[in-house]
């Protein structure tokens, strides 16, 4: 049960939230949204990798 991936995603999420708030207060909304998208794409990559690993394992285990 490697909890490290949970901490990675939480860290990225908090980073995105902080940078979003800072950029928004500095009045640069477009950059704020760029950081949100960047954070989302990194987390999406981690999630897709884990879920595809699960699907592959289940496919080989249940032979379908």
């Amino acid at each position: 049960m490697n909890v490290s991936i949970i901490w990675q995603i939480a860290g990225i999420a908090i980073l995105v939230i902080v940078v979003h708030a800072v950029l928004k207060s500095a009045g640069r909304d477009e950059f704020a949204w760029l950081t949100v998208l960047a954070g989302l794409s990194v987390v999406l990559y981690l999630a897709v990798r884990t879920v595809s690993d699960l699907f592959q394992t289940v496919r080989t285990l249940f032979q379908f």
């Binding site: 049960m1 989302l40 999630a47 690993d53 699960l54």
Partner: peptide
């Protein structure tokens, strides 16, 4: 719980990853 009110989409992804890891542990 911390993430959902701030970034709902990241919370959904985190929930997916957590669920997948638990299922992987049971395999």
């Amino acid at each position: 719980a911390l993430l959902r009110p701030l970034r709902p989409e990241l919370a959904v992804l985190l929930g997916l990853v957590a669920g997948a890891l638990i299922l992987l542990a049971v395999i």
